[in-house]
């Protein structure tokens, strides 16, 4: 399990840097696929490990994208509030041992609400740190919305492509 997550850390990082940072669709859309790593960490992960790994992941994306700590700040924040979000979304299966956050174990609607809340918060923090000012609030807000949707689509596509649903 640990090794699987370590491998996932590097895979999402490489995909983010080489593929998703190069999606030049419009001035608005930039999917942050790497958030998937934080979403899929097992429920039993110690909190400090979750925070530190999210920090390292965000910081690496920052270093290669000239974004100076913005991804790190957003990633650490969602890693910290993740347990609260999990508690907020109702599911019977959540705390059974061995259950992983993902479409395969907890179903599509659970994953959709879980992923969209965390992705929205992450993108919200990132895009406002990026412009670093509050005028043009709505312009930045559109970027948050469009990019959140793009990230969500990519992450859900990944879930359906690589994880078969377990009954």
């Amino acid at each position: 399990m640990l090794i699987r997550n370590i491998i996932r850390f590097f895979v999402v990082l490489i995909l983010q840097l080489l593929v998703f940072n190069n999606i030049q669709f419009s001035g608005y859309i930039n999917p942050f696929f790497y958030v998937l790593f934080i979403l899929l960490l097992p429920f039993e992960t110690p909190r400090w490990l979750m925070l530190v790994s999210a920090f390292l992941l965000g910081l690496t994306v920052d270093v290669f994208g000239h974004t100076y700590g913005m991804h790190a700040a957003a990633s650490v924040f969602i890693a910290f509030i993740r347990p609260n979000v999990v508690r907020f979304i109702y599911s019977k299966k959540e705390y059974e041992a061995g259950v992983l956050p993902g479409v395969a174990h907890l179903g599509f609607s659970w994953f959709l609400s879980y992923a969209s809340i965390l992705i929205f918060i992450h993108h919200f923090i990132y895009f406002y740190l990026e412009v670093f000012k509050l005028n043009d609030f709505m312009t930045t807000f559109y970027r948050v919305i469009y990019s959140s949707i793009a990230t969500l689509i990519v992450i859900i596509a990944e879930q359906f492509l690589f994880y078969k649903r377990r009954k």
Binding site: W48, V52, Y68, G69, A72, A73, V76, F80, F132
Partner: peptide, 27 residues
């Protein structure tokens, strides 16, 4: 966990502020 969270956020925000003012040499 909360203290670690605060420390990591603080480090990130220091990077953000410095990076905004002048390009960070280390980065």
């Amino acid at each position: 966990a909360f203290i670690l969270f605060l420390i990591l956020e603080l480090i990130s925000l220091v990077f953000v502020v410095n990076g905004n003012r002048h390009q960070s040499a280390v980065f």
